[in-house]
Amino acid sequence: MRQPPRYLTFRVYQGVDLSQLNPVQNASPTERRMDIFALTWRLPIIVWQILFFVGPLLFMVAMSFFLVKNYVMQETFVFDNWSKMFSRGYFRDSYFLTLFLATLSTIVASLVAFPASFALAFKVSESTRRWALFLLIIPFFTSYLVRIFAWYVILAESGAINAVLSTIGLRPYTMLNTKFGTIVGYMTLTLPLVVVLQTFSLANVDRNLVQAAHNLGCSPWRTVYTVIIPLAKTGLIVAALFCFILSFGDFVSPYYLGGSKPPTLPILIIDTTKSGQQWPRAAVIAVVMMATLITIAFAAITLAYRKRASR
């Protein structure tokens, strides 16, 4: 029988698992070299994250306490910006609208993507799946803004969809500058990504378990709900989370397809910086957005992994 690697074996001394206390200290020279090796590889991403994520994030939090006088930011520590933004009704309205639209986008994208992902994972050949995934990635080669402007031609009252509807006697529908337009924009941004992530997740489901469910008399629908979805749950939740994050922070769709009517938080950030160069107040909005996203991401990841561990 093949022995597990030495670094996976526990060394017990007087009933205490030493490797759990301090794995590095108790490691052999070979293991220590491995740790240094692993750390060396991890170092670039750690440095990157500190420089370009943690650093700017901390600066943004600090900036939310600054003041702007004569268009110049002054480094102070006052709560004026926070009290100002939280006392504004439009800030609360924008917050809940953004939350609602991002949630709706996540639900719609997950539901629309699932049948396509399921077909790609279970119903088509390996070659077809590769081509389909390649085609799903192609939209990312072009500018998101250009793709959004392309929707003008399709969704306008004089556009392609209404032209088709008019042939069957239906009146033109207003789709641009509505919440529907915003959701279409969000789908343009997120749907290909959600399909790709869902497909990867579903393709990794153990076929033997699906076969076993069939053999035990489980109907196809029940197999999907009780076997496939629980097994692919982590990937499905991660896909939904990506969709939420991208939609929540998107400026382009609500502005150009939703007509900024009413504005979402990213639009409010632009509005705030445009007039009076109130970057500190924009920082307050950004911090609130970050806190919301971190909370939701943490909850989603917890949900994604919790039951899997207990199974």
């Binding site: 439009y90 924008s94 509005d271 007039s275």
Partner: peptide, 11 residues
């Protein structure tokens, strides 16, 4: 004026 403009857009 800008504050009112934001309120107006949200109205």
């Amino acid at each position: 004026w800008n504050d009112f403009w934001s309120e107006y857009k949200n109205a």
